[in-house]
């Protein structure tokens, strides 16, 4: 379990990194935290010819708030996210999900941008950025563009990034007042990829009815599954046991989970329903009682 031969270059600046990527294209991978990439290299499932190490690019790490928008640099490590009071205050949904990501040793090294660019559909953070309705900034040596989170994830381990692009920043809107969120997952062991996980954002109108709901599931499809449309019947409705059951049923119907080593398709569908109900109740409670 040793990586195949490779060329390693430590980029000294973002421009340097992007120039190298422009030169080597698809042959090269960026090495961020490496916590997903290096295991696959050790199994020789991934054999990048060139690794461009971007760990020295400290400009790409950091968390900032600008009004109702949270900016997170792609090289921000989970360790920093977990310990950031601003993030806990502004995006409790993300903070709630962080402890479920592997284990402290992985979170000390792993980065948000690296995780999103790896695009594992079972991973937590893709579902979080989709549920939050975030957008992602991609840069190449020549240009820059924003990609909506829901458009970023194209397939298992596949993103909308071009060969010459790097994900450099994640921008997430802070929830509006009378919002509640919840992240939950069912994993065999703490830190495992979940059999199914859910990220749910709920906002209530002044009368207590649902004014918006966003749901993203991890482990339930080939990408993080945006089930917001399936839940949209709740919008404008009062929330009660029956309405919650309807949302769960609707989400269950809308998804086509792939099944995995720990859960069959059918069990995943069942768990998704369980999680929708539990997360919706929790988010409702939080939205109501702040």
């Amino acid at each position: 379990m040793k990586p195949a031969p490779l060329k390693y270059m430590a980029a000294t600046s973002l421009d340097h990194a992007l120039r190298l990527k422009a030169d080597y294209g698809g042959e090269a991978s960026f090495l961020a935290g490496g916590q997903s990439l290096i295991p696959t290299m050790n199994f020789r499932l991934a054999q990048p010819a060139v690794l461009i190490d971007i760990n020295q690019l400290s400009d790409l790490a950091g968390i900032a708030r600008d009004g109702q928008t949270i900016h997170i640099g792609a090289m921000t490590r989970y360790r920093a996210l977990e310990r950031d009071p601003l993030l806990a205050d502004a995006l409790p949904l993300m903070t709630e999900a962080l402890p479920h990501i592997a284990h402290p040793q992985i979170r000390n090294r792993g980065t948000l941008g690296g995780n999103l660019a790896h695009a594992d559909p079972a991973s937590e953070m893709p579902a979080i950025v989709v549920a939050l309705g975030g957008r992602l900034r991609a840069r190449s040596a020549a240009a820059e563009r924003w990609i909506e989170a829901r458009d970023f994830f194209v397939g298992p381990l596949t993103t909308a990034l071009h060969d010459d692009e790097m994900l450099v920043e994640i921008e997430l809107p802070a929830p509006v007042p009378r919002s509640g969120s919840c992240f939950m997952e069912v994993a065999r062991r703490r830190g495992d990829f979940a059999m199914v996980g859910i990220a749910l954002m709920l906002t209530l109108g002044k009368n207590g009815d649902c004014s918006s709901i966003r749901i993203a599931l991890c482990g339930a499809g080939e990408t993080p599954v945006d089930a917001s449309d399936a839940a949209s019947g709740l919008i404008g409705q009062p929330i009660d046991g029956e309405a919650i059951g309807d949302v769960a049923a609707s989400v269950q119907q809308s998804i086509d989970p792939p099944g995995n080593m720990q859960a069959s398709k059918e069990f995943q569908r069942h768990l998704a329903g369980v999680l929708v109900k539990r997360a919706l109740r929790a988010a409702w409670e939080r939205a109501t009682h702040g």
């Binding site: 065999r188 059999m195 720990q262 859960a263 069959s264 069990f267 069942h270």
Partner: peptide
């Protein structure tokens, strides 16, 4: 046993 198997 497992959660999945119990459910089945």
């Amino acid at each position: 046993l497992s959660p999945n198997r119990l459910w089945e």
